[in-house]
C-alpha cells in the first residue's frame, strides 16, 4: 500500500479537527449542535478569496508567490481579515437569531432547527453571490517534495499543517491558561453558577462564537487552498465535524483535534481500500460506532 494516504489523511484530518473545535465549543458552552457551523468554513474561504482577489487587483506585486508556496502575500493578509470578518459574521448571526432564543429560554432543539435554517440561507447566499462553480486561490501548480518514507507533500500542504498545529496549541493555551478560558470552562460546567460567580456569560458566549468562527475560517481556507472553494465546502464537511466533536468528547479541544485526525486518516485509508466514492460514509460509520460503544467520546466527561 502506498503510504501517501497518511499525508492526505493528516491534512484532511487537520481541516476536520479545526472545524470540530468550533462545533465542540459551541456545543459545550451554548449547549446546542450548530448545523450552521459548516457554513462558517465556506464563508471564511470565500471571504479570503474575495479579499485576496481585491488585494491582488490593487497591488499586483502581492500576487507574486512567496518562496516555494503557490500563493503571494495577498493570501496571508486576506486570511487575517477573513478571520476577523468570519468572527463578526458569527456574532451577527448570534445577535440576529440565537440570542433571542436564549433570552426566551427556548428549547435546545428550537435552536438546532434555527441553525438548520441559517445554514440553508447562508449557503444559498454564497451560491447566489459566487455561483456553484468551484473557485481557487491560485492557479499555480506545485510540485510535491519527497519527505522520505515514500511520503510526498507540497509546500502548501506542509504550511497548512503548521498553521493547524499552531492554531490548536494557541486555542488550547487560551482555554487552559487565560482568564477567559477559565471563564469558558466555568460556563460550560454550569452557566447560572458561573453568572453568580461574576463571570460575564455574554462575553464568554461572544468569545466562543469568535473563536469557533476563526478556526472555521482557517479550516475553510485550508480546504480551499488544498482542494477548491465551493459553496458546499462546509456542508460536505459537516458530518465529519460532528463525528469528530462527538468522538473527541463534547467540550474537549484536544479531543476534537485528535478525533479529527483519526477521521481524516480513516477516510484516507478507506479511499485506498474501498474506493473514493464511500469516503463520506466513514464519518457516519465512526459516529454510529461511538454512539454504540462510548457515547461520551474519547475524552468527554460522563453526563
Amino acid at each position: 500500500m502506498n503510504p501517501q494516504f497518511l499525508m492526505d489523511g493528516l491534512i484532511a484530518g487537520a481541516i476536520i479537527g479545526l472545524g470540530a473545535i468550533g462545533v465542540t465549543l459551541t456545543y459545550s458552552i451554548l449547549r446546542f449542535s450548530n448545523f450552521a457551523h459548516g457554513e462558517l468554513l465556506s464563508w471564511g474561504a470565500y471571504l479570503a478569496l474575495g479579499i485576496s482577489g481585491a488585494l491582488g487587483f490593487l497591488a499586483a506585486g502581492l500576487k507574486q508567490p512567496i518562496g516555494p508556496f503557490s500563493f503571494g502575500w495577498s493570501l496571508p493578509i486576506a486570511a487575517v481579515l477573513a478571520i476577523i470578518l468570519t468572527g463578526l459574521l458569527a456574532l451577527a448571526v448570534d445577535a440576529a437569531l440565537f440570542s433571542s432564543f436564549r433570552r426566551r429560554g427556548s428549547a435546545i432543539i428550537i435552536m438546532v432547527m434555527a441553525s438548520f435554517g441559517a445554514s440553508l440561507a447562508l449557503r444559498s447566499l454564497l451560491e447566489f453571490f459566487f455561483t456553484s462553480k468551484p473557485a481557487y486561490f491560485t492557479q499555480a501548480l506545485q510540485i510535491a517534495m519527497k519527505l522520505g518514507g515514500g511520503l510526498r507533500a507540497t509546500p502548501d500542504q506542509l504550511a497548512m499543517l503548521v498553521v493547524a498545529l499552531v492554531s490548536v496549541i494557541a486555542v488550547h493555551l487560551v482555554m487552559t491558561r487565560t482568564d477567559i478560558g477559565r471563564a469558558m470552562r466555568a460556563v460550560s460546567e454550569n452557566p447560572s453558577l458561573a453568572g453568580i460567580a461574576g463571570i460575564d456569560v455574554r462575553r464568554v458566549i461572544r468569545t466562543v462564537w469568535f473563536l469557533g468562527a476563526a478556526l472555521a475560517c482557517i479550516a475553510g481556507m485550508m480546504s480551499g487552498l488544498i482542494i477548491q472553494i465551493r459553496p458546499y465546502l462546509g456542508h460536505d464537511l459537516l458530518l465529519p465535524l460532528f463525528a469528530a466533536a462527538i468522538l473527541g468528547g463534547i467540550g474537549s479541544v484536544p479531543g476534537a483535534m485528535i478525533a479529527g485526525l483519526i477521521i481524516g486518516l480513516c477516510e484516507a485509508f478507506t479511499v485506498q481500500i474501498i474506493g473514493a466514492e464511500w469516503r463520506s460514509a466513514v464519518s457516519f460509520a465512526i459516529l454510529i460506532a461511538v454512539l454504540l460503544v462510548r457515547p461520551r467520546g474519547l475524552f468527554g466527561k460522563a453526563s
Partner: peptide, 19 residues
C-alpha cells in the same frame, strides 16, 4: 442564482417563523 435566492428565502422564512 435566482434558484439560490429562492432557497435563501426558505431558510430565512424558517428562522423568522421560529422567531
Amino acid at each position: 442564482q435566482a434558484a439560490a435566492l429562492q432557497i435563501v428565502a426558505i431558510g430565512v422564512g424558517l428562522c423568522l417563523m421560529l422567531l
